[in-house]
Simulated scan of single mutants.
Amino acid sequence: MAKRKPTLLACEQSEHHVLLTFKVDEDIEDFKGHFNHFPLLPGVTQIDWAIFYARQYLNTPAHFKGMEVIKFQEPILPNAEVTLSLTWDESKQKLAFSYQSQRNDEAVTHSSGKMKLGDASE
């Protein structure tokens, strides 16, 4: 079976927020074919993980309704240790996400954005 998710190292959770720390293992299937000589984690995978973990930890609705803001600033490379911050705004049905890591004692933002989630009937 192809490996599709990172190794979870830590989790801090409150009612509408979760902070997950991962090791983005080099054997994750999504690295294959996404630039043979310079593998990086595809943006679509980062969005997929944000929705997956939001559903798991924040009980968000299942259906993707669109992106409002998204920025891919720094690539996520194989074996990187990253944090994924997820914040759910129930009243607006919006999920904010941010992938970050540390480089030379400074925070590096890899990607961030907001997406609308809802029920299939909406």
Rank of each mutant, 00 (worst) to 15 (best):
E29N: 03
D48N: 12
A10L: 13
K3A: 01
H37Q: 14
Q93D: 06
H110R: 04
H37F: 14
E74T: 13
K92Q: 14
D105L: 01
H16V: 04
T45P: 02
H110P: 02
V44G: 08
D48Q: 14
Y53D: 04
G113K: 03
E122D: 15
Q46S: 08
K116D: 05
Y57P: 05
T60W: 07
D105N: 12
I28Q: 02
F52R: 03
S98Q: 15
M67N: 01
G33W: 11
F64E: 09
I47T: 09
F31C: 03
D89I: 00
K71F: 02
E81Y: 02
M115T: 00
K3I: 12
S101L: 08
T45D: 02
K23S: 11
L86V: 04
P78F: 05
G43M: 10
E74N: 11
K32Q: 15
F52A: 06
C11K: 13
M1D: 15
L86C: 03
P39E: 07
Q46N: 08
I28G: 05
F97A: 00
L20H: 06
S111Y: 02
V82F: 03
S85A: 15
E74Q: 15
R4W: 14
K94L: 12
M1W: 01
D119A: 09
G43E: 10
S112C: 08
A120Q: 10
F64S: 07
L84K: 04
I76K: 04
A50G: 01
S91V: 09
H110G: 12
Y99M: 09
E15T: 10
A120I: 13
G43V: 09
S14W: 03
T45H: 01
I51N: 04
F31H: 07
L84R: 05
E122V: 10
Q13K: 15
D89N: 08
S101H: 08
S121C: 09
K32F: 12
N36A: 14
S14N: 14
G113T: 04
K32L: 15
V82E: 13
